[in-house]
Design a protein around this nucleic acid. Structure first.
Lengths: 166, 166
DNA sequence: GAGCTTTACTTGCGTCGTCAAGTATTTGTC
DNA sequence: GACAAATACTTGACGACGCAAGTAAAGCTC
């Protein structure tokens, strides 16, 4: 809200913005819908379990999970409540730091991820990768990285934790 | 969930997907935050009013607004409730078709859009266009269009309604 | 080592969004 | 023209999310 003259979007920018806004609105809905239909979980719940499944010991601090799954702490806390009730995750205090809570994926949780991953990956492929060329995938990677750096500066490390599974 | 072998994501695809997921999660939050801070409205509320402001007569059918603002009907209905309470929008029955409802932007609503647009556009510029090159904007346009076609097939027309304002 | 600050969650409360069901109007169909 | 089906919303019930406040452990300072 500076006093400067507003730089309105050009025609090209408007169209790009409109396309982006549409994608950003609907993509999460589609992913949620598939997971809800075939696994009875939300995309965020899946992300939480998937991140845990990729961690050594299937264990991570709440805040780490949150960062990787793109969710703030209150949201994560309630989500882990639900996952705990369903027997897929358990909490235990971090022996290293009494303030921290560790989330642990149970065997049942592991099985749930393994059962759910193929359908989810297929959906991601269908809506994101199949419509794009290999070149566009690289372009998207760069573009999304740049935007994400601005919208969420304290983003996650460039390398994911040991992928020991799906 | 076919019986076919799962085609897991390649390393490149995983990274691109991770970057995209981050962007898709945080971008809406950042835009909502700016509008909430500076105008006390959500991004969806702004979109609804902005679409109306660009329409001739500042009037549109609910379902049209919903399509342009990327929201389903129940959401739109409640959003217009709120905007109506704040005096920015009014409803009236469509004389052409008694089932339809027309949403009309009031003068106060128009003023609100005019007052809010500069700050919002600046934020969109800051998080989307400033970090990208002109080439990347074109690439993003094409990529987002392709993905949106899959996630929301009954998308909106390629051309926006007469932009008679912001 | 007492006390203030910071960090890492958790939770109460209010709002928002979605699903399913309900209402009103229009559009065939016979 | 009467009745079923479709369309265009609206609404009741309910779950999820975010903000701000609360709790508990660590860390720092003197």
């Amino acid at each position: 809200m500076a006093i400067e003259e507003t730089r309105w979007l050009s025609g090209e920018e408007q169209q790009a913005w409109f396309a982006l806004a549409g994608m950003v609105s609907w993509l999460p809905d589609v992913l949620d819908a598939q997971l809800q239909r075939e696994a009875g979980i939300t995309h965020f719940e899946y992300s939480v379990m998937a991140m845990l499944s990729m961690s050594p010991e299937r264990t991570m601090r709440m805040s780490e999970v949150g960062a990787l799954a793109n969710g703030a702490l209150p949201r994560l806390s309630r989500t882990v409540d639900r996952l705990e009730k369903r027997g897929w995750v358990t909490r235990r205090p971090d022996p290293q730091d009494g303030r921290a809570t560790l989330a642990v994926l149970t065997d049942a949780g592991w099985d749930k991820v393994v059962a759910t991953a193929p359908g989810h990956v297929a959906e991601v492929r269908r809506v994101v990768f199949d419509p794009l060329t290999k070149t566009q995938v690289r372009q998207l990677h760069e573009i999304a990285t740049r935007i994400r750096r601005v919208v969420h500066p304290d983003g996650c490390p460039p390398t994911l934790p040991e992928p020991s599974a799906p």
